[in-house]
Design a protein around this nucleic acid. Structure first.
Lengths: 315, 315
DNA sequence: ACCCAGTTTGAGTATTTGATCGTACTTGAG
DNA sequence: CTCAAGTACGATCAAATACTCAAACTGGGT
């Protein structure tokens, strides 16, 4: 962040204080700051867009709270949050994203140094964009999914880069392919010193955040949609019982990892099932219910942030 | 909170979600919830009034942060927060109140059971009104200032009662007069079993929140204004070097407690000076600078939440 | 069943906010 | 220094939001 941006954000934050805390209107703010009303308006909306303002709803809506308690009990989870649902016109993910970013914010605020592991996925990248700007040099922020696809391309949702837009910390990308097609390539990377060091960080994680990808149909399978795999591989995987994936690691309806898929060796290092450290999934949508349920049953994750409709379907 | 209020708040929270998180407008919200637009508007403003919505500004305004660091250093404090200043038309206390309520919220959210001690004063009572509604039966919320004035009246800012409007917890009022005019009365209360028990809780505090009252002039001296003392006593106190008070306990410019004021034995139990536990004062206003400085110098408190102008004057 | 006091409701209206657009200013390359 | 591209600005207008008030609805008491 450069000096002028800090200065601008400073003014934006001040305007936001006046607007949201002191409940002044834009005219008054403009007068106090000696600027035009429009400028005040723009500062306020800048503050909101830059995530300088956080809206937190304190009241746990009864139905959401009930759902979250039931989910906690049924799947023996540490951490469940359910965002209330809304008309289907609105992107449901916004609610999950909001709760998720708050959860991550609290981890980032912690004084105790931690290794925080981030996977990949649409929701996670949206969450990354919504994190509050903070400096937390005490932590290490590590990716546990490769940073290039089969053809060398950056994968569609490169979460670490987005986090670093808002958060000042120490970032460790995972410099391997998302999956490798041969044991030789896999072996090379696993023995490559920088990678070995990152893997050590990942294995010593304090909290891990992932999304869960569905596999129900061609349209809803993220791996396929993002051209990380082709049609043939998709069908092969389906025939082996794959119902979902986390970071490209595929699992069946019991949440057991499906290995031995020809030419597909996912390189992501996931926490072991039944971890005692928080492994929190952000996921929702009816096309993912099966995948989420499988991941919970297999105890691949022990925390979930989802939306009301998905929560109901999981029960 | 009765059932119908919970139900109403539920709807209010839902509307607030849609408004502040999903960024829907009132028309859309009304349609989704099947209510009129006006009703949607009322639900949103209800949510705000009932503190169901929290506005948090993430960006630490550079000048405020600098002030807070300087204060921390100069007075060797654990905890300083400075609210940005604003036109003098607006009540400056709002900023302090906002930061203060957030600080207290985090204490209330803590899982670890604590004895949280609350004093008295205008700011504290405003803070109490702004606390987020939570249930925290793990804590004990204790008053360390008497609950009746010299003539038996409830003192003007009865903080505990206000807290209990928002917070579900275990409350322990301090059932003594604010001050007693004779050693006999003092003795009686100090030996009265229920009071003894409360004193034990107070002495075992985990965090203590107070305001600092000024003494600069007749108009600004809270004790006098609230008719807890009369003119004669005010002048007597001034002549003994009193510059401020916390919970009615008077101190001089070095923060030393002034005792031996005829017929005035304050009954409040304050933490010892130099406490290692957080003792946080919420105070601002130019008429209190002297009092605040004295309290900080005497290490009667080790944390301060104030506003920009006051912070500057303290340095 | 009826009444009354206190709420709640929605239509109408005033105020506030957000978006558009042409102009002015800033910046950086040549 | 000049020009082009991009950015910021404020006037104006459309949209959204907050307020007011009279009518309708409560529900507790007779």
């Amino acid at each position: 962040m450069n000096r002028s941006k800090i200065h601008k954000n400073d003014n934006a934050a001040r305007a936001a204080w006046m607007y949201y805390i002191y409940k002044m209107n834009q005219d008054e703010i403009a007068k106090t700051m000696g600027i035009s009303r429009q400028r005040a308006q723009r500062l306020i909306s800048l503050a909101v867009n830059e995530n300088l303002v956080n809206f937190k709803i304190n009241h746990s809506i009864v139905s959401c709270q009930e759902l979250s308690l039931e989910l906690k009990k049924k799947f023996n989870l540490m951490n469940v949050d359910v965002a209330p649902n809304v008309s289907n016109k609105i992107d449901k993910l916004d609610g999950i994203v909001n709760l998720a970013s708050k959860t991550i914010d609290t981890f980032l605020m912690a004084k105790k140094p931690m290794n925080l592991i981030f996977g990949s996925g649409l929701i996670l990248s949206k969450v990354a964009d919504k994190l509050s700007p903070v400096t937390c040099l005490q932590h290490k922020i590590v990716s546990n999914i490769g940073n290039h696809g089969p053809d060398g391309l950056e994968p569609p949702y490169f979460v670490l880069g987005r986090i670093s837009q808002n958060v000042e910390s120490n970032f460790f990308p995972f410099t391997v392919p998302i999956y490798s097609s041969s044991k030789e390539v896999q072996k090379f990377f696993l023995n490559y010193l920088p990678v070995k060091k990152t893997i050590k960080l990942i294995k010593n994680f304090d909290a891990c955040f992932v999304t869960i990808g569905g596999f129900a149909s061609k349209k809803t399978a993220g791996l396929l949609r993002d051209s990380l795999i082709d049609d043939d591989k998709y069908h092969l995987m389906k025939s082996k019982g794959v119902v979902g994936q986390i970071n490209g690691v595929c699992f069946d309806e019991n949440g057991k990892i499906v290995k031995n898929i020809d030419n597909y060796i996912p390189m992501s290092i996931l926490p072991d099932a039944n971890s005692t450290k928080p492994v929190i999934a952000f996921a929702g949508g009816s096309d993912r219910v099966l995948a989420i349920k499988a991941a919970l049953n297999g105890r691949l994750v022990n925390g979930l942030i989802t939306d009301e409709v998905t929560a109901e379907k999981l029960l």
